[in-house]
Design a protein around this nucleic acid. Structure first.
Lengths: 228, 228
DNA sequence: CTTTTGCCGATTGTCAACAGTTTAAGATTC
DNA sequence: GAATCTTAAACTGTTGACAATCGGCAAAAG
């Protein structure tokens, strides 16, 4: 029982109201409860969460820096709307970073890690067979997270996570298209195969291609920035 | 005289105290007035800048998210200290991003942009001939900034600028070593040559190599993460 | 002599109130 | 009826004050 107390205290020790609120807002954005362009009312939020405006303002300044909201002086903070151009730019960056992750991981991957990644791919296969998008999505997330984390560059992992959060500002999601699930997991298997073969350049190329195909599923294969 | 008032008001209109303070703190870090590990006292800062603690706290939350400071609950905000491992990780990310910038720029670069880049390299040549490190450094900065900006991915440019700011948390700087100036500008010329040749893969490789050589000048050529 | 305990100053976390700005509705004019 | 001006409500920016917490120092216990 002292375990619970300790963990509770530990939590309380490292978390100010500001950080709790920031995470809460991030999750609200991730769950789509706050849609792009929407303005968030400091007073209403303060009342809803039972705190004063101070911590909320501090949390919003953090969200601003991580690109999740825009702050306009004297008008308020708005959930950021990713237009097509910005989304395409993010995909390009994301492709480069995932490519780097694959290149880093391939030479140092352990058999155990390969097994874990294989497990994720098989999970997604099962979800695909059941046509269950809701369990495909988290598997996909864990697969990509594992690759960047196993790569050993923790800062890269944090950066990828931040970009992933920012992607939720897009209304349309690549994987929402049912047909994409099968080809997406084929790509996952190709990535895994290059990693298991300890092939840095191959893993890099496979991961880059995977991200860019996702982008093309959104914007069309031309690769140009769509306007707005 | 009304000009001053107007411009001051115009500034006031688009900039909250928070954003002004954040920029001020960023510049203090960039100029080295705040050294790594140092704690910043909210009351003292508030008194020094003539504002209350609220905007200062908000600014610090932004700095936290951009990685320039650490915030420890109930103890305060500390200028972040980049240990060797984190710095090496940042260099890897930076190399990938600059490589991407080169790959994007090469196919679309204009003759005028090539001329501008050539100008920067010649400026650095002159600074080098004069042994003037203080004018080599800003030339170097503008050269790299121009490459990412001409590449057209504005988000990438912002990301590179953020990483560059974070690099100032390192005490030792690559270019501080006088011998590095010459070889560094040789690399710049190689980069420029690949861009002018409209060679995406070559520009990417040259830029990646340039960043990694900088890293090796700091950490040695092994490429492993030094401990602490 | 070392360790523990209790206190005090300093500093941060949070809050409620005030001041200035924006927004929107209503009144007024053409 | 449309456009403009007026005015009030709502909201954000900022401040000062209060409560909670931390680090250090001195006294007491072992």
């Amino acid at each position: 029982m002292s375990l619970d107390i300790d963990s509770a205290l530990q939590l309380r020790r490292n978390q100010s109201l500001t950080s709790i609120i920031r995470r809460e807002l991030e999750q609200m954005i991730e769950r789509g409860e706050l849609s792009a362009g929407e303005r968030l009312n400091e007073n209403a939020l303060a009342a809803k969460l039972g705190v004063s405006r101070g911590p909320i303002r501090e949390a919003c300044r953090g969200l601003e820096q991580s690109g999740l909201v825009n702050v306009v002086v004297n008008r308020g903070v708005f959930i950021r709307a990713l237009d097509g151009r910005e989304a395409a730019e993010l995909y390009e960056i994301r492709a480069a970073l995932y490519g780097l992750a694959g290149r880093l991981l391939a030479p140092i991957v352990t058999d155990q890690q390969v097994a874990i990644l294989t497990g994720y791919v098989e999970e997604m296969d099962a979800a695909m067979a059941a046509g269950d998008l809701n369990s495909f999505y988290p598997g996909n997330l864990r697969f990509h997270e594992a690759i960047v984390e196993f790569g050993g560059n923790m800062r890269l992992a944090a950066e990828c996570a931040a970009i992933h959060r920012e992607m939720h500002l897009l209304r349309r999601r690549t994987l929402d298209m049912p047909g994409r699930m099968a080809t997406s997991n084929d790509e996952h298997r190709a990535i895994l195969e290059r990693i298991a073969a300890r092939d840095p350049a191959g893993a890099e190329a496979a991961l880059e291609e995977h991200v860019l195909i996702s982008r093309n599923a959104l914007f069309g294969p031309l690769g140009h920035y769509p306007d707005a």
